[in-house]
Simulated scan of single mutants.
Amino acid sequence: MRIIGVDPGLRRAGWGVIEHRGGRLRHVASGACLSGAGDLAARLSRLHADLSAVIAEHRPDAAAIERTFVNADPSGALLLGQARGVALLALAQAGLEVAEYAPNEVKKAIVGVGRAEKGQVAAMVAALLPGARASTHDAWDALAIAIVRAHRSGPASRLAALGASA
């Protein structure tokens, strides 16, 4: 299964694509979509176009995105929400099933601590995906989000879902 993880942001939206086969993880690609400066609508359009191009190039089977956390700055939270909405739109337009994870949930799953630093997340992702290179913390975070999706979509999670529906 090929999975794309997205760390949404208005200035820079991180993305990471991994392969999950037979319990093994492999780094495919990662990077960041940059919106530049200027008009908000144009910046959101650039994010959508760039993320859509990444999806078309790497053809993932599933997706995961970071859930927005409560921000002390209401205007910042609104801008992040708009960027996240654009990312969700691009994923949905590609027909992808999208899982959402809170930032502390991703950190706890990857590092073992919900308040881990970005450097700790990057170091663990690098250990889990030998040979992976990412240019920004946003890309490392996106790879971490994809890894969580891979681990939570395995046989154990499918069995749990079957038990819950019975």
Rank of each mutant, 00 (worst) to 15 (best):
M1I: 00
R2L: 05
R2M: 02
V6G: 07
V6W: 08
I18Q: 02
E19A: 15
E19S: 14
R21V: 14
R24A: 13
L25V: 08
A29Q: 08
A32H: 04
G38S: 10
R43I: 03
R46G: 08
L51M: 08
V54K: 01
R59T: 13
P60W: 13
P60I: 11
A62P: 10
A62W: 06
A62L: 14
A63F: 12
E66P: 13
R67K: 15
T68G: 12
V70A: 14
D73H: 15
A77G: 15
L78A: 14
L79Q: 15
L79I: 06
L80Y: 04
Q82E: 14
L89R: 04
A90Y: 01
A90S: 13
A102V: 04
N104S: 15
E105R: 15
K107W: 02
A109C: 05
I110H: 01
G112Y: 12
V113F: 14
R115V: 01
R115E: 09
A122S: 10
A123S: 12
A127T: 09
L129H: 05
G131H: 11
G131P: 11
T136I: 12
H137N: 15
H137W: 06
A139R: 01
A139H: 06
W140K: 02
D141Y: 01
A142I: 11
A144W: 00
I145A: 07
I145V: 15
A146D: 07
I147S: 03
V148G: 07
A150E: 12
A150G: 03
H151Y: 06
A156L: 14
A156G: 02
R158S: 08
L159Q: 13
G163W: 11
A164T: 13
S165D: 09
